[in-house]
Amino acid sequence: MPTFNLKINNKTHTVNADMDTPLLWVLRDHLNLVGTKFGCGIGQCGACSVHVDGNVMRSCLIQVSQAEGMQITTIEGLSENGTHPVQEAWKAIDVPQCGYCQAGQIMTASAFLAQNPNPSESEIRNAMHGNICRCASYNSIEEAVKVAADKMS
């Protein structure tokens, strides 16, 4: 199997994997970074969202062979000890129910707010529309994004 060097959370990791292996499974099964979740495998649910060069992307749609040279951030690398304003807002609002989708929601929200720190309500709803929460904690997610935006702007 070919070898790839990946830059994840400011560390370089070397992995052996088939070149079509999605980054999602490299993170979860090869590197033990299981905070990035598997939900659909086809880029529809957003549970596997990571940051690539600061933009939110679906790690299930990135093949490991494409990931070399990318600056990848996962939920584990978003902050030291969960202190990113988005994480703090999630905690303050007590967003999660089952909690499974929330890492993906947080990654989407944090990339979005980095680019748009003063979003309108409809911009928030558009930005978060791609992330499914099966428990439907959408009201709380929306509120938490607003709280985080207030902190960040």
Partner: peptide, 28 residues
């Protein structure tokens, strides 16, 4: 109003769920 007892683990992506569970030598 009391926050979810697993909130810190959830927001930092710690292994909590069944899919996150692994053991040495385990096959998928």
């Amino acid at each position: 109003g009391t926050a979810n007892v697993d909130i810190d683990e959830i927001i930092t992506g710690k292994p909590l769920f069944g899919l996150d569970y692994k053991e040495e030598g385990m096959l998928y």
